Computed example of a mutant assay.
Amino acid sequence: MRIRRAVAGLSTLVAAAVLTACSAGGTADVRLAAETPKSTSDITTAPATTTPAKPVMAAGVPCTITATACVSLSGKQAWLLDEGKIVYGPVKIMPGKKGSTTPLGTWHVLYKEKMHLSREFDNAPMPNSVFFYNGVAFHEGSLAKYSNGCVHLSAPASLKFFSSLSKGDEVQVVR
């Protein structure tokens, strides 16, 4: 039985060598069948690395280093960041109430208005408005009662956010 296997293996080896030499015009190196993978399943390759990079968190805030403004709804705080470093804050905020919650996620500043008047709420003044989501902005407002989705800031904090943030800046709102 062992001899039969050895002879069969040797004949396969010789046949492979002849075929390789013939197909190469007789001038190429002769590769032995033992060195040639039998099927694609015999070929080993390094596994592809498709794991996305873990986001880098900014020190002292619950947001990543890409954020320019960070809002913690549960902590009722906000910060301004520059390249992942806190440049202002934490400041107290008042987020949206139940049923009109401030949207979680990563957004970008859409536009700013020094004195926005809310058409939705009888022309209610919204000083230093920085809109980062449709109808939702940082602005000066009460820190004693919940907003209708916006992020209320004190007068000095709203002015700082207004003067520091620019169209396109990243705003992260986390739980």
Rank of each mutant, 00 (worst) to 15 (best):
T51F: 09
V18I: 15
A69V: 03
V130G: 03
N134C: 00
H139V: 02
S142K: 07
S72R: 07
S166R: 04
D29A: 11
A16V: 10
A144S: 14
A137S: 15
E83L: 01
A155K: 12
F162D: 00
V18Y: 13
A53V: 12
R31F: 12
K145Q: 12
V30P: 03
M1R: 06
F161Q: 04
H108W: 06
C22V: 13
R4Q: 14
S166D: 05
A157P: 02
P37V: 10
N128A: 06
S154Q: 10
G25F: 10
H139Q: 03
R2V: 10
G96Y: 12
F121L: 11
Q77P: 00
G105Y: 13
R2T: 12
V61Y: 10
P47I: 11
G141K: 10
V151F: 07
S72H: 08
M1D: 14
R5E: 15
T68Y: 08
P37G: 05
G25Q: 03
R4W: 15
Y88F: 11
R119P: 09
G25M: 08
K98F: 05
T44S: 11
N128D: 14
R5F: 13
A8G: 00
N148M: 09
T36L: 12
P103A: 10
Q172P: 03
A15D: 11
V56W: 08
P95I: 02
V91K: 02
Y88A: 08
Y146N: 06
V174S: 01
G99H: 09
G60F: 05
Q77T: 03
V171A: 06
L10Q: 09
C22R: 12
L117G: 01
T44L: 07
V18W: 14
S74G: 04
E120K: 13
T44V: 13
A53D: 14
L19N: 06
L165W: 10
A21L: 08
P95F: 07
A24N: 08
A157Q: 06
P90H: 04
S154N: 04
Y111M: 06
L10R: 11
S118V: 05
K145A: 03
V109K: 04
T40P: 00
V87H: 00
V151I: 15
D42R: 12
S142Q: 10
L10V: 09
K97P: 00
N128Y: 15
N128Q: 12
I93A: 01
K92I: 01
E140D: 08
A67R: 09
V130I: 11
T106N: 09
P55N: 12
H116F: 14
P47E: 13
E83I: 00
S23K: 04
I3Y: 15
T49C: 07
G75D: 14
T68D: 14
A6D: 13
P62M: 09
S41W: 07
A21W: 15
V18H: 01
A17I: 08
L73K: 13
I43G: 01
G60D: 02
V151P: 02
E83Q: 12
A46H: 07
F138C: 03
V30C: 03
N134L: 04
G96C: 05
H116C: 00
L110D: 11
M1C: 06
C22Y: 15
T102L: 05
Q172G: 06
T64H: 07
K114E: 15
H108D: 02
L19A: 09
V87I: 14
A17T: 01
V173Q: 05
V130Y: 04
R5G: 03
W107K: 03
A15H: 06
G105Q: 09
A67W: 13
P55A: 14
T64L: 06
K92E: 04
E120L: 13
